[in-house]
Design a protein around this nucleic acid. Structure first.
Lengths: 341, 341
DNA sequence: TTGAAAGCGGTACCAA
DNA sequence: TTGGTACCGCTTTCAA
């Protein structure tokens, strides 16, 4: 069923039918009604490719997932992000196109995306501190927004980020207030901008109290369970082990917990832990202790918001960069305690 | 830069340039070489929409994520699945199009996807036991493959699934061999096919030994941490608490562990736990105890394989349904122990 | 081996 | 208010 067939069936021209379908004013109400009803009845949907060709708009947004040889992990929040963004897209009739791009072929990939012309804009995920994509997209004049920031990039760009440094500074402060002086930081890969900012926040809190920063208390790697386990075991084995930990991901924190337990220590008494967690109501019962930054539902919210920003950029080009910073919610539960004396 | 400009620049017809680019034989080697070189130099990429219109093939695969009002969770493995599938797609020049579809509007959505014509095939995620999508897609004559199965559907279809019932039967057997008689099952939502099959496996193992199935030992809900915690606390509070648990997701298992610990019990001594886990090498060190079914890397593998199946179906239509069953790897670590006497 | 021209399925300008 | 027609960028048949 295409426009031609539909219009023949109606005894009208393609032009009129198209106008009726797309809500143009110069169609009589009677005609429009008939067209709409018949289209519905005959299950007509316009061919997206033809429509795109004719209008020059793809009605689709690209999400690029970098695939690296070195660390082949996919951003674990990607699914939730897409779910949030998808709701916004659906509302505006947009679709999501995903391209997996090898780190090394990024430049060519973006050019080709632009040339292929099947997206109107792009969302950049997982920015590194010095992320080349931003300048690249800027030069290509392809509308884009970034989920996160890239500290070392000077080109202006639109983004939405969580205030990661502030969140980690507050978490560290909280532990310092409880008397902890040796606080372990189990961080993600620090060439990722969010992980870098988290460390900055941690260090800032220590600096503010004149506490020397001890590299032996900081670990940075891909955020797996085994990493959390190893890093924690390691630090706990030292002569002067940390009395508290800040763990930068839920999965990593599983390893942290296990390492603590394996050593015969008790969380929330011998060792305090602050980490992300998933379900806020759960935590409010006092069972645990999150920095509430990247829970699944907040990621969905971020996705929806960022999608709106991008659509706005597409609709009204030439706007100044749009930026937004979300504060993380910090809720403390029972797995923190004053430092043992 | 489009074909017209490129061909004018070369002093050739669009036809010849197109043929050279697409590897048709009736072009002289000299011409082809020149065309290829110039195209590369001028950063030419064909417009995907125009190409699609002309060829009738979209070179894209649709992934549909059902969004329900009742349980708004996104399949947590979706990101990894896409990563795996994406590699296959990229190799064949395909792209991924994602549509979020409301449960209630499924029928219309699939028809529209078909009519819009921007995908050549579809991957169905998270099948429920009686999943209407399968018959729908079958009738629409849109090639599709299913990640998982739908036990109550009779229409034949192509799928790739993990042998979930067998995995859970083996896990249960293992615990029974250790002398456990009260084994708690922390399961996902059982209208989902995979969760249903897991329960079947669990029940089968008990039946084989003539052990009565106790509904009080089975819990089914969305697989969150809080669910794992509540279900476990609950069962442990009974007069005759279970001595072992099988937990159907990594996240849920966090809650299980916490509930056990909170009760002053020790995992791998007082209570045994079998669950999924993420990193095989980790587990081989004897630290823990997974049923190795849905780790991130195995999901990627499944994605890649399923994508290949679909592309094959698209290339050679009229093939009988393709089916594949993956056995789960079962590895036992230190968090299981003989039943306390 | 090359090129002209007719589509693919829509949109949008111009004329009626 | 409606219809004819050119065009979006590419592929493909047919003729040269």
């Amino acid at each position: 069923m295409n426009l031609k067939e539909l219009s023949q069936h109606l005894g009208l021209s393609q032009t009129t039918v198209s106008r009726a379908l797309n809500g143009y004013p110069e169609v009589s109400e009677k005609t429009r009604e008939k067209v709409l009803k018949t289209a519905q009845a005959m299950n007509y949907s316009p061919n997206a490719r033809a429509q795109g060709l004719a209008t020059g708009r793809a009605k689709a947004i690209g999400h690029v997932l970098p695939v690296s040889d070195q660390h082949e992990m996919v951003n674990p929040i990607f699914g939730d992000f897409i779910a949030g963004a998808g709701v916004t897209y659906a509302k505006h009739g947009y679709e999501v196109v995903i391209s997996l791009v090898e780190d090394s072929k990024e430049e060519a990939a973006y050019q080709s995306i632009k040339a292929r012309g099947n997206v109107d804009g792009i969302i950049v995920h997982g920015p590194r501190m010095a992320d080349r994509r931003i300048e690249l997209l800027h030069n290509l004049k392809l509308p884009f927004v970034v989920h996160g920031r890239a500290s070392e990039v000077n080109t202006p760009y639109s983004y939405l980020d969580t205030n990661n440094s502030r969140a980690f500074q507050r978490a560290t402060d909280f532990l310092l207030d409880l008397g902890h002086r040796k606080i372990g930081l189990i961080n993600g890969l620090e060439f990722m901008d969010f992980a870098h900012r988290r460390r900055m926040g941690y260090e800032q809190a220590l600096n503010n109290r004149g506490i020397a920063i001890d590299p032996g208390l900081m670990r940075s790697a891909e955020m797996t369970e085994i990493f959390g386990y190893t890093a924690t075991s390691d630090m706990l084995a030292s002569d002067t082990p940390p009395t508290a930990f800040i763990a930068a991901s839920m999965i990593t924190a599983i390893g942290v917990r296990r390492a603590i337990h394996e050593r015969g220590l008790e969380m929330g008494r011998d060792v305090s832990v602050i980490t992300h967690d998933d379900d806020l109501s759960y935590l409010k019962n006092g069972h645990d202790v999150p920095i509430f930054t990247a829970t699944r539902s907040s990621v969905r919210t971020a996705g929806a918001r960022l999608a709106e920003m991008l659509l706005q950029l597409i609709d009204e080009p030439g706007q100044g960069p749009l930026t937004e910073l979300m504060e993380a919610e910090l809720i403390i539960g029972s797995s923190t305690a004053p430092a043992p004396t």
